[in-house]
Nucleic acid binder design. Structure first.
Lengths: 286, 286
DNA sequence: GCAATTCTCTGACTAGAGTCAGAGAATGGA
DNA sequence: TCCATTCTCTGACTCTAGTCAGAGAATTGC
């Protein structure tokens, strides 16, 4: 890897942990410990402990103790979930909500302290660069996993995909027509817990894999996630022993079509009668 | 302050502390604690404890204890400075140097982990954006202080200024000619401990302040530090009851001249016979 | 209905990070 | 010379953050 790049990333790490890290440590917690504050923040309008542990990456014993201390201060209540009385749900009290908005103000304050010493033009440059850094760091955090089409995350993505299509297609889109897919596997891309992209696959005939329903969340567009899903799909198809991948698509999806072409797909005659399709592609796996 | 900007900075803080912060915490320390590792790194080729405390922001008792533990592991030696036997100087042993380069490799590794999941183009974009963020965050960390012209930092800056001039001036520059200034105050800009810019001032006649020797370190050019020094100088002049500021400058210093003009200075006839001067400026303080 | 599993909690730890109040040596200034 | 100051060290703390091993309640699968 280019050592100039590595050097710049190291410089960035250093400056950022010094400046942003120090501000966070000093101002974010307030009277409370940083961990307790973060927890307070994440609880929001009520969360079950399991998901809180997930997002914050805490040990269950530790989380319990933090909650106990917030409870003692009258900021949260923890009750059993009526649906499953093993799981418990934390909720903010009125005092907790007040505290949370104080936390909010401190976060704003930190941001303002960072912006304050700069001129307007410098602020604009900084914010633009931060947006870039943030988006690209997030790309690095995306994880792709193969799941069953019944998996809730897969269902969520496909729903989102249909919603997008309904807006995009010139002739509208009726999800019900194709809602019963033959998909065998879905690759789900997640940022942390949240699904932000997917692509489905099934094997209509031996040696041929068909790709369906590639979707990327608005917030993650333009970051190469589509290409990454395509690459991982190809790997999966190879592992299954397929010799080619095919797909059909609608003419409205121009950027997807460009992606297919630049990824080695070639347009072929129609191989099915999918109602919304205008283009059919195939890629030979070597 | 623009709330979109604040929101973006907050998003940045979150993403960066999650991604970069977590990587640092997990991989940087190695077997040693993060504090000890950072200390090891900063010692480098030998540093006195005072300056180490400054850079790392540690309590003297805590630093002492950290050094004791590194000493016990045979990584550093601490000896009295022969010049002043109260101050002690820490130096790395051979084992310490080995450990430090291992630390170096871990830092590189972290940078590579950040870059690894990206395509070449994304890497380039990330590195460019990081460089921007880093430079602008550093701007925010700059502190300006008024010191005596005898202050070592002031001397250091003026020396650096003369060195720069010797290169810039068409007809060369002999610092000795003007080495005995009448400066009364010097504003020194520092990044952490290190001086990166200055501007001097004296009062040749009642109510008139004269600006001399504005200098900004190469690494800090283009970040508006010159303008900031000028603004702070103006404030200082006002506090002293001055009604105008004047200055003379050499025609080689084009960007400085542009700065003066855009800051409200107007060219006036020569008010002195400074050998290297080609332009004279004055600004009325209202 | 019973066993395995899931979920949360408590108690008992550990290590890191840092603060604070002196003690004691060395130095500098009047 | 002597007193104030500077510099480092030690001891005695505190707090945060986190781990680990069980205990006990609720739920699920068979």
């Amino acid at each position: 890897m280019d050592s100039d790049m590595v050097a710049e990333v190291r410089r960035f790490n250093r400056t950022v942990t010094q400046r942003v890290g120090a501000l966070n440590d000093h101002y974010l917690g307030g009277d409370r410990s940083l961990g307790a504050s973060r927890l307070l923040w994440e609880i929001g309008d009520g969360r079950d402990l399991r998901s809180l542990r997930g997002t914050l990456g805490l040990d269950s014993g530790y989380l319990s103790r933090l909650l106990r201390s917030l409870e003692a201060d009258g900021l949260v209540t923890v009750e059993a979930d009526p649906a499953d009385r093993r799981v418990r749900v934390a909720r903010l009290t009125a005092a907790g909500k007040t505290e949370r908005s104080a936390l909010d103000r401190r976060s704003d304050g930190i941001a303002e302290m960072i912006l304050a010493p700069l001129t307007e033009r410098q602020r604009e440059r900084l914010v633009a660069a931060m947006a870039d850094v943030e988006r690209l760091l997030r790309v690095g955090m995306v994880e792709v996993e193969a799941v069953d089409p019944d998996h809730p995350d897969a269902r969520y993505c496909v729903q989102a995909y249909f919603k997008d299509l309904a807006v995009l297609f010139e002739d509208g889109f009726d999800g019900d027509v194709v809602l019963a897919p033959d998909m065998e596997t879905v690759l789900v891309a997640r940022l942390g817990e949240e699904p932000i992209g997917c692509v489905g696959m099934y094997e209509p005939e031996p040696g041929v894999c068909e790709m369906k329903r590639m979707w990327v969340h608005d917030s993650a567009r333009g970051l190469g996630l589509g290409r990454r899903l395509l690459v991982e799909l190809e790997t999966l198809a190879r592992q299954r022993g397929a010799t080619s991948i095919r797909l059909e698509t609608n003419r409205s999806l121009t950027s997807a079509i460009a992606l297919y072409r630049s990824s080695g797909f070639e347009e072929v005659p129609p191989f099915n009668a999918e109602p919304h399709a205008h283009h059919w592609f195939r890629k030979q796996l070597t």
